[in-house]
Design a protein around this nucleic acid. Structure first.
Length: 439
DNA sequence: GCATGATCATGC
DNA sequence: GCATGATCATGC
């Protein structure tokens, strides 16, 4: 048949995709309910290609439009309570074949061929509806910038090196910045073989992090003035090296000195004043650092006492008792946290009470400690389920993490099994644990 | 000195 | 008004 667009021309494909915006697939094509398979999950992309673009998706690792070198991605967004749209999930590019990937080069890998130029269609996820009735809201034609391509290349190498070292079971999304190795399995017990080790590993896929998609969407629209970049891609330099180089001149200065020299206009009493100061050190005037936002990096200030131990434990958003008992570890918020990357801004107290900047440190949780975090999470859920939300794992239970209150005040509560008003709580990383990790 | 509970400052 | 990250307060 004659196609209503030119499959060798990205602009023409993009233009044809415009006809989907504000529509559902059912409204603009001949698709029927019987075309939707079993769960209906994940196959909207296939249906769009077949019924709207009249293409048979290549069952190889080629981009969907090989002549145009363009990969079509259909992905869900959800609406937050405040009305903003955010990606519902990571953008999965394809399963990782642990045995094959260690023999590949990035330049010839399917990841490279796919991410170079992507047309991403965003639809609003609406629970309980068939995928063909979910509405498309926006699209974006993405030729990857050289900076992003460089970091994704670095990420790919990091992942493949770890697999080649026989550590596929230790992979974590926190190992990398934009391209992650996300777990991909219906059941958390599912394991596969890996090269150079007898240890079974969770199946994982290459995926662009949700934080990456979210930032690109925002940068593209109304929030442009929120973000700025500091990373200039040079072949030899990693993001970590670029950060280290920027921060080096400020190491050894006190926070008072830093506020005086580069902190004009910053509130000195703000609790996140040290994070703001870091932006200034990186030469960034906007509230957010583009590269850190894309990578979903948790930026946290660590204030060491004179003995070199953090004064405080590290808190996270409180959880909902009734929600967490319905979750499995694999889909929990805390699992996402322990598989994310952190950037610690380290200050040390001196005997005379000054705070000296010691530098920034990237960190993500090692494998054994993620197993321990999972143990704490499981015990927490078990206790809540059995009506003990008032007595959750404390510091004696684990060297890595504990649970304790995190509300705005004692009366800031949520319902839990057996408790109508239990104070809001969250997972904390133990200060003593962070101390050992920083050494 | 540390564990645990409670609350503050800011942004949206 | 609430979420979030940071910090304070209390008691053993």
């Amino acid at each position: 048949m004659d196609l209503p667009y030119d499959p060798s021309d990205p602009a023409s494909i993009d233009n044809h995709a415009s006809g989907l915006i504000s529509k559902t697939l059912r409204e603009v094509s001949e698709v029927k309910d019987s075309d939707v398979t079993a769960k209906g999950k994940g196959d909207l992309g296939t249906l769009v290609e077949k019924f709207y673009f009249h293409q048979t998706p290549p069952n190889t690792h080629e981009p969907d439009f090989p002549e145009a070198g363009l990969e079509l991605k259909v992905t869900a967004v959800k609406e937050l309570v405040n009305g903003t749209l955010v990606p519902k999930e990571r953008l999965v590019l394809g399963m990782i074949n642990y045995h094959a990937v260690i023999k590949e080069d990035f330049e010839t890998s399917y990841i490279f061929r796919k991410v170079r130029l992507m047309l991403v269609l965003f639809y609003l996820y609406t629970k309980g509806h068939s995928v063909i009735d979910m509405r498309f809201l926006a699209k974006h034609l993405w030729p990857l910038s050289p900076q992003d391509l460089k970091l994704i290349h670095d990420d790919w190498l990091t992942i493949v090196k770890k697999i080649d070292a026989g550590k596929a079971h230790e992979l974590s999304e926190g190992d990398t910045l934009y391209l992650g190795a996300c777990t991909k399995s219906a059941t958390s017990a599912n394991r596969t073989t890996q090269p150079n080790s007898t240890e079974p590993a969770k199946p994982r896929a290459f995926a662009l992090k949700a934080s990456y998609i979210k930032t690109l969407l925002e940068e593209d629209t109304i929030h442009r003035d929120l973000y700025s970049n500091f990373f200039a891609a040079t072949p030899s330099e990693s993001l970590e090296e670029a950060v280290t180089k920027k921060l080096r001149p400020f190491i050894g200065k006190t926070d008072d000195e830093l506020f005086a020299s580069i902190g004009q206009g910053l509130g000195k009493t703000a609790k996140h004043r040290h994070a703001l100061l870091t932006n200034r050190m990186l030469g960034i005037k906007t509230p957010k650092i583009s590269e850190f936002e894309k990578a979903g990096i948790h930026i946290r200030t660590v204030r060491l006492n004179t003995a070199g131990t953090p004064r405080e434990d590290i808190s996270f958003p409180h959880f909902d008792y009734m929600e967490i008992i319905e979750q499995r570890w694999e889909e929990s918020d805390f699992k996402d946290i322990v598989e994310s990357k952190f950037f610690f801004i380290v200050y040390q107290e001196t005997a005379d009470g000054a705070l000296v900047f010691k530098g920034g440190r990237f960190w993500n949780m090692p494998y054994e400690d993620r197993i321990e975090a999972e143990r704490v999470w499981n015990e927490t859920v078990k206790r809540i389920k059995t009506g003990h939300a008032d007595s959750l794992p404390n510091k004696k239970f684990s060297d890595v993490a504990h649970v304790r209150p995190h509300g705005r005040k004692a009366s800031d509560t949520l319902p839990a099994p057996g408790h109508l008003n239990e104070v809001k709580k969250c997972f904390w990383l133990n200060a003593s644990y962070i101390a050992t990790q920083l050494r």
